[in-house]
Write a protein that binds this DNA or RNA. Structure first.
Length: 318
RNA sequence: GGCGCAGUAGCCAAGUGGUAAGGCAAUGGUCUGCAACACCAGUAUCCACCGGUUCAAAUCCGGUCUGCGCCU
């Protein structure tokens, strides 16, 4: 029998964290964060990390697990999240995945196979070098020869994806386009409810702008400065998070604080938009529009619980 | 009141007689090991308004309105 899995996601700043606690309490659940930045220690303000107080005793996984100079990516997320799932199931509790990184959620939900390979990054570096020296078209042409389907699907300018496709071919001898096609047809090994919390676009943008102002008041610049002094730099995955890269530019004297804030707000809005695009094409998602429930937290919670009851046999306390 | 300069998409802006560059924003989309990443697509039947010159005007001329600067 498939095990239950609840997912609560949505664009940044929509209010996922807040809604997640009520859900966890009602379901006797524990929370797994699907957030590419909140895994990092010392990055609390900019990542809008839930505070221990806000957790209200609900156990959270994948928060504060890594140092900012460690690498984090889907595969690592998948491993860690699966381990957390096992722990939660062992306790007979319900796992609730909360976070805005759609790609990570997908990887976990459909247990996508990333065809584990060696850590060897020399080929990747080689290709990156080639792209810089001879241009993106050269790589794209190389891809066309070994995997024409991928070449058609991936725009030549999207160097990162082109490189991954080439790397995949080199390591496995197969075409990533075919691999992806197969993975796409997979059914989830879980009995799940995939909620996407949403709000009117304008309100969402207002919340984003407001939240960034609050982060600044709370000491975002100081937080980033402390990281900078610890020696963390722009090329690390953690420092590419929204709020970190922009403030780092300011601290490095590449722009004014005002400019950094403008860019941060703008890019966060762009991010929210991209997240929505992602969720729109995911199958089996349940959209929860806050305005449909008059922004009432209890109504929203009840709506989610109703949908869970319809689909999954689990015990819900009221 | 007089003189000068300006008025092009939500914003910035090129074009100065031959049938509206570009950037930003907004919007939509792609994504299967960097995903808070990376990437893509399109947006003015029209150049403040009215009239004139011309085969042809956003571009020249006259007037009106608005803004800015200077003068009285």
């Amino acid at each position: 029998m498939k095990k239950p899995l609840i997912i609560l996601t949505g664009p940044t700043a929509v209010g996922k964290t807040r809604a997640s606690i009520g859900l966890a309490k009602a379901l006797n659940g524990e929370i797994i964060s699907a957030d590419s930045m909140q895994v990092y220690k010392h990055m609390d303000i900019g990542s809008a990390k839930i505070s221990p107080h806000e957790m209200q005793g609900i156990k959270h996984y994948l928060i504060d697990e890594l140092e900012p100079d460690e690498e984090f990516h889907v595969v690592r997320f998948q491993e860690m999240a699966k381990k957390a799932l096992e722990e939660i199931y062992a306790k007979n509790k319900v796992p609730i995945v909360v976070g805005g990184t759609g790609f990570y959620i997908q990887a976990l939900l459909y247990d996508i196979d990333f065809t584990e390979s060696n850590e060897d990054t020399t080929y990747r570096n080689e290709l990156e070098h080639l792209a810089r020296e001879k241009g993106a078209e050269v790589l794209h042409d190389m891809l066309r020869k070994v995997d024409p389907k991928s070449a058609e699907a991936i725009h030549a300018n999207n160097v990162k994806r082109v490189i991954r496709a080439l790397e995949f071919h080199k390591q496995t001898g197969a075409m990533i386009s075919e691999h992806n096609e197969q993975e796409r047809t997979k059914n989830s090994p879980y009995e799940f409810c995939y909620f996407v919390l949403n709000d009117e676009r304008e309100r969402l943008y207002e919340r984003i702008n407001l939240r960034i102002d609050q982060m600044l008041e709370a000491g975002l610049v100081e937080e980033v400065n402390a990281l900078k002094e610890q020696g963390y730099t722009k090329d690390m995955v953690s420092m590419q998070g929204l709020g970190y890269k922009e403030i780092l530019d300011y601290l490095n004297g590449d722009c004014t604080l005002e400019e950094a804030i403008y860019v941060l707000k703008r890019d966060t809005r762009h991010f929210a938009k991209r997240q929505l695009t992602w969720f729109r094409r995911e199958r089996d998602v349940i959209w929860i529009s806050k305005n449909d429930y008059q922004y009432d937290e209890d109504k929203i919670l009840n709506a989610m619980l109703d949908r869970i009851r319809e689909r999954i046999q689990i015990c819900i306390r009221n």
